[in-house]
Computed example of a mutant assay.
Amino acid sequence: MTVLSENVTTGRSRPDFETFFVRYGLFLLVLAAFLLFAWLRPTFISAGNINDMLRSASIAAIMFLGLTWIIAAGEIDVSFMSVAALANMIVAGLVAAGYGWPLACLGGLLAGVVFGLINGGLVAGFKLPALVITIATGGLAGSIAAAIGLGTSISLSSTGFVGSVLHANIGIVPLITVVVAVVYGLSYVIQEHLTFGHYLYAMEQNRAAVVEAGVPVNRILFLLYILSGTVSAIAGILLTADLSSGQPYIGSSYFIDGLTAVLLGGMALKYGKPNVIGTLAAVLLLAALLSGAALLGWTDSQRQIVRGLLLLFGVAVVVWARRKNRAHI
């Protein structure tokens, strides 16, 4: 009887431990990264460095929010970074031409909405393959961004009200980080507690069944692509103020980071399912790696290798988990 009890206890404790590791392993990895870099380079946890990390992570988190839900629904958007670059160049071009920051921001935001409408209309409305469509629209957005500055950057002497908001702090925490935390908190509620969130994961697992159940799948996809275009444009606007310039090719640096954050974030909470909390944790991990690597003197190629390995791992985890889940359906 004693042996039986011990076996039962062991059998219960092992799944509990595995479940805990699966759900919270990414958060432990983020904590480990911060502790390791703080130990190797104490300046890593200085107030100025923490502030810079949180600001850059906040901009990235805004850009990747729409992408997270699109991938969670079983689709893809590889135009997000080019839309951000286009919004960045539109704002810089208009400000440099003397139109002022409010009108320039409106122009950048409008570009994001337009590309979201195009992506959503072609993918959800005409049922064209999302990868092909977003590669095409991303190329178009990137080409327009380069054309605005004739292939070069546009420097700005003032960052306007956007710069004031972006560099406002609450203690050592940027105000934008607090805003992003609230947005992601609301997104988590939508994702976990509203019907809309449940539809996202159901669409990825068995879209035909969701359609038969009367769920407006195409309308949801349409809205998701508009969301992705909009938040990408907002991130591009913030980058204009953060860099005090328009950079036509800035989107390329966010491509791998965006996919890595979303897919690696699929390790957290919902194994194999991209979710907003996982994306936020992965963004913090990438920000820590970028800052820590810079302080340690890593070359750009070394940082790219680490990013590539993380992306490969994230893809492997998500694909494996999705195949396992479908095998049980």
Rank of each mutant, 00 (worst) to 15 (best):
L269V: 01
I190R: 07
F21Y: 03
L280N: 10
A241R: 03
V231C: 14
G138Y: 12
V162E: 05
I144T: 09
I172G: 06
S79V: 01
V183D: 13
V83H: 02
R55W: 05
D300N: 00
M63T: 04
R207P: 14
A141I: 03
M63I: 01
A32H: 04
A327R: 07
L122S: 02
P274E: 09
V123T: 12
H167S: 12
S158R: 13
V183Y: 06
A202E: 10
F255C: 02
T9R: 07
M203S: 13
L309S: 14
L28F: 00
P102Y: 00
A111F: 12
G74W: 00
L259N: 04
A130Y: 05
R326N: 09
V179D: 10
V8M: 11
Y188T: 09
G112N: 11
N88C: 03
A294I: 09
F161Q: 05
I256E: 01
I170Q: 01
R219Y: 12
C105G: 13
A104P: 07
A72E: 01
L67S: 06
A268D: 01
N88D: 03
V210D: 05
A97T: 04
G265Q: 05
F44S: 02
T137Q: 02
T43C: 03
I220D: 15
V123H: 04
A104I: 06
P129Y: 07
L312W: 10
T195I: 15
K324G: 01
G163L: 02
L295I: 02
S253G: 11
E212H: 15
C105A: 13
W69C: 00
G251P: 00
V318L: 02
I50H: 05
T9W: 09
S13A: 14
Y199N: 14
G125H: 12
V22W: 01
F313M: 15
V173D: 03
A233L: 03
P174G: 04
H328F: 12
A213Q: 08
D77S: 05
N169P: 05
L156P: 02
I148Y: 07
L311K: 08
S252W: 03
A293P: 05
T195G: 12
R207M: 15
L86Q: 05
F196L: 15
A146T: 14
V315R: 03
S143V: 07
I172E: 13
T2C: 01
A261Q: 12
F196M: 06
I176F: 10
G74S: 09
L200V: 08
A294P: 00
L175V: 14
S245Q: 13
S56L: 11
L243N: 11
G297Q: 05
